[in-house]
Simulated assay, not measured.
Amino acid sequence: MNKSPDFRNTLMEALGMKILPMQNGKYYASMPVDHRTVQIQGCLHGGASIALAETLAGYASSTLCSQEEFPVGISVTANHINTACAGTVIAEATPIKLGKRLHLWQVDILNDNKDILSTVRITNYLISHNS
């Protein structure tokens, strides 16, 4: 299931997020740095970065779930160490632990020069549709 999700009428569409092709076991997404994603000083909003990271980790977990399961985020920890004021950011999700009920992801947000802007740890809990 590497089909791009339908983001119509969602936060993801409003922020211009796009799922990119998976490479070498890592998942990728992009988001523009523009009027939708910046704070009042004109640089990337930390909340937009977290939204991108959580979106990508959720998508990545969903590709690994059975049809009877879906992931929900239960923990997000972010460190913002740099910023961008233009261009596009890329999120790169790497699985740390893929258990039966918990998925732990490391998501790095990178600028156009591949510098790390934010590093985010996300834990997803897999819930059964029957729960």
Rank of each mutant, 00 (worst) to 15 (best):
D115Y: 09
P71A: 02
Y28K: 10
N111S: 01
K26H: 08
K97Q: 14
H35I: 03
W105Y: 14
D108F: 12
T119P: 02
T123P: 00
L56E: 02
T63N: 05
G99Y: 07
T94P: 14
E54L: 07
R101Q: 13
L104I: 07
L117K: 07
L98F: 07
N2V: 06
N111R: 05
A29F: 11
K97R: 10
A84H: 05
Y125D: 00
V33I: 11
Y59E: 03
L44D: 06
H35C: 01
E68C: 03
G42I: 04
V72R: 02
P71Q: 01
S118K: 00
C43F: 15
I96D: 15
G16V: 12
E92P: 04
M12Y: 13
W105S: 01
G16D: 06
E68R: 00
G73P: 03
N111E: 12
V120I: 15
I81P: 05
R101P: 10
M31S: 11
E54I: 04
A14H: 05
S131W: 00
A57G: 15
N82W: 01
G73Q: 03
C43T: 09
N111F: 13
K114C: 04
S49L: 00
L52Y: 07
A91E: 14
V107G: 14
A57D: 02
A91S: 15
Q41M: 14
G42P: 08
K114I: 03
G25K: 11
Q39D: 11
Q39M: 09
P95V: 00
I40W: 06
V89S: 07
S61A: 09
K3M: 08
G46P: 14
M12S: 12
V107L: 13
